[in-house]
C-alpha cells in the first residue's frame, strides 16, 4: 500500500543564470524527476522568505532557490542578499520543525545545465529520504 513517495518541490530561479541553466538542461535533453515546478524571477534576490513559507504551507516537501554564482549576479549583489536571507530562514525553519535540508540554494550559472540536472536529482533523493513534510492527514496541507 505504501506508494513510493514523490516529493513536491517548488523552485525559484533567476532569469539570467539558473533559469537559463534549466533551459540548457532542456535543450541538451538531460532528464530529471518531474516533481519540480519552477517560478521564474529576475534575480534570486527577489525571493521573499514568504514565498518559501507559502510553498511549505501549501504542501511542498522542499523548496529550491537557484541564483548566479557570487560575484556574477546580473544585478551586482542580489545573490548576496538571497543567500543571507536563505541561511537565516533555514535556521528559523528548524524551530518550526522543518529540516534545514528542505530548503536548498544552489549557485548555478547559465552554462551549467548539467549542474542543474544533478541538483534536481540530488534534492529529490534527499527529500525521498527525509519523507513528506506533513505525514498524510497532517494539518495545513493544501490550505490557502
Amino acid at each position: 500500500m505504501a506508494e513510493e513517495f514523490t516529493p513536491k518541490i517548488i523552485g525559484f530561479t533567476c532569469n539570467w543564470c539558473t533559469y537559463a541553466a534549466a533551459d540548457l538542461a532542456g535543450t541538451s535533453r538531460m532528464q530529471y524527476p518531474p516533481n519540480l515546478r519552477l517560478v521564474r524571477v529576475m534575480c534570486s534576490g527577489r525571493v521573499s522568505p514568504e514565498f518559501v513559507l507559502k510553498a511549505f504551507q501549501l504542501g511542498a516537501d522542499g523548496v529550491f532557490i537557484g541564483g548566479c554564482h557570487l560575484g556574477d549576479c546580473h544585478y551586482i549583489h542580489g545573490n548576496f542578499k538571497a543567500i543571507t536571507r536563505y541561511y537565516l530562514l533555514k535556521k528559523m525553519l528548524q524551530q518550526f520543525g522543518i529540516e534545514p535540508e528542505r530548503v536548498r540554494f544552489n549557485f548555478i550559472s547559465a552554462a551549467e545545465g548539467e549542474a542543474f540536472t544533478q541538483a534536481v536529482k540530488d534534492f529529490t533523493e534527499q527529500l525521498k529520504r527525509l519523507g513528506p513534510l506533513r505525514p498524510s492527514g497532517g494539518e495545513g496541507s493544501g490550505e490557502a
Binding site: P49, E50, L53, K81, R85, L88, M92
Partner: peptide
C-alpha cells in the same frame, strides 16, 4: 510579520 522582518534584516 516575521518573514518580512527576517528579509529586511538579512538584506
Amino acid at each position: 510579520q516575521g518573514a518580512r522582518m527576517l528579509s529586511a534584516l538579512a538584506s
